[in-house]
Computed example of a mutant assay.
Amino acid sequence: MTNPSDRPWRDLTDPRRALETDDLESGLKEPEFANLEIPEKLGTVRVVVDDHKIKRFAFTHDDHSPWYLEESPFGGQRIGHAALLGNDLVQLFTLVYAGSKVVGYHTEEQMWFDSPAPLDEVVTLTGTYTEAYERRGEGYVVMEAQATGEDGRSIVRHRGVEILKTSPGAIGGRGSATPSRRVTGEVPDDARVVETVDSGVRVGDVLAPLHKTITAEQAAVFSRIGEYVRNIHNDIDAARAGGLRVPIVQGQQQFGVLAQLLTLRCGPSFLTSGWIQVKFLAPLDVFEPFTSTGVVTAVTPVDEGFRVDLEIWVRRDSDGRLMTAGWASATVPTS
């Protein structure tokens, strides 16, 4: 019989080791740009998509769809949310670098959605730092990572850009350094609002929006407080040390909201053909109401369906400022 303690944990690290270990980050490197080694493998870790992991994500994103808690269109089995493994991939670097010493800033996220992860599947996460460069006096690093299933299939693929160590309060909101394509978040007043992307969708249609407020509790849980990691998203002292007044919502958590929006509007096919690329433009405080939506920019016929391309964004409700903006696509069947 397998010892339960031998089963992979649901997270990158098993917090139960705190019973026997004083320094949970012993032996890890200081998160300094000078310490990077390119390319640098960030390790391989196995995690289980268990009931707790799914319910925890449902709480952090207020996304309690029956697909995750009861049964899904994928053979009736429960599955994890589209972006369930996103933060695990983003945080792979903390297997090499001390996570609680990081005061970084996630600037760009891109993810390809290839297949859903069913309840109780053990998935394997791998990642590598592939590139590093300096811009505007800040050190940027690029990570490429992937989550694969027990049968070797790809679940999601990730490419992210982050400033490894900075003062988020100083740099947040100064905009993208490479605005080659700009998403304005502006749509005509008479644009058609659609709840579902189907065969009748047309260019200019606007996705019915999602309205959210992420609380400090939700941000803290999403940002690994359960693994005893302290950062600018789950600890007010760490936030203030980074030039912020209060913790800010992790960019990857906003990304999860956009993935929720696109799953709702595009249906099951988003989990097998979806793609999102966004830039994080300004910090979003906890308890700050915001709205996510998008506009259809192209509809292209493909085999057995059509590909829809969109501009997507997150906008702060208080003043209408864009916090996150980018692009998405999915292939949707005609039937």
Rank of each mutant, 00 (worst) to 15 (best):
R16Y: 06
A18L: 07
T21R: 12
L24I: 09
L24S: 06
K29F: 10
K29Q: 06
N35C: 03
E40I: 00
E40H: 10
V47N: 10
V48Y: 01
V49K: 00
K55D: 05
H61C: 14
D63M: 02
S72K: 11
F74G: 15
G76T: 03
I79Q: 14
D88A: 15
T94I: 13
Y97T: 06
V102Q: 12
V102S: 11
V103H: 09
M111V: 15
W112E: 12
F113A: 10
F113H: 13
E121C: 09
T124Y: 03
A132S: 15
E134H: 06
Y140Q: 05
Y140N: 08
H158N: 09
K165H: 15
T166F: 14
T166D: 04
G172L: 06
T178C: 01
T178I: 10
R181L: 13
P188M: 10
V193G: 03
G204Y: 01
G204K: 03
L207Q: 00
K212A: 06
E217F: 02
G226Q: 11
V257P: 00
L261W: 07
L262S: 00
P268L: 08
L271V: 07
L284R: 06
L284A: 09
D303I: 01
D303A: 14
L322S: 05
A330K: 01
T331P: 01
V332S: 10
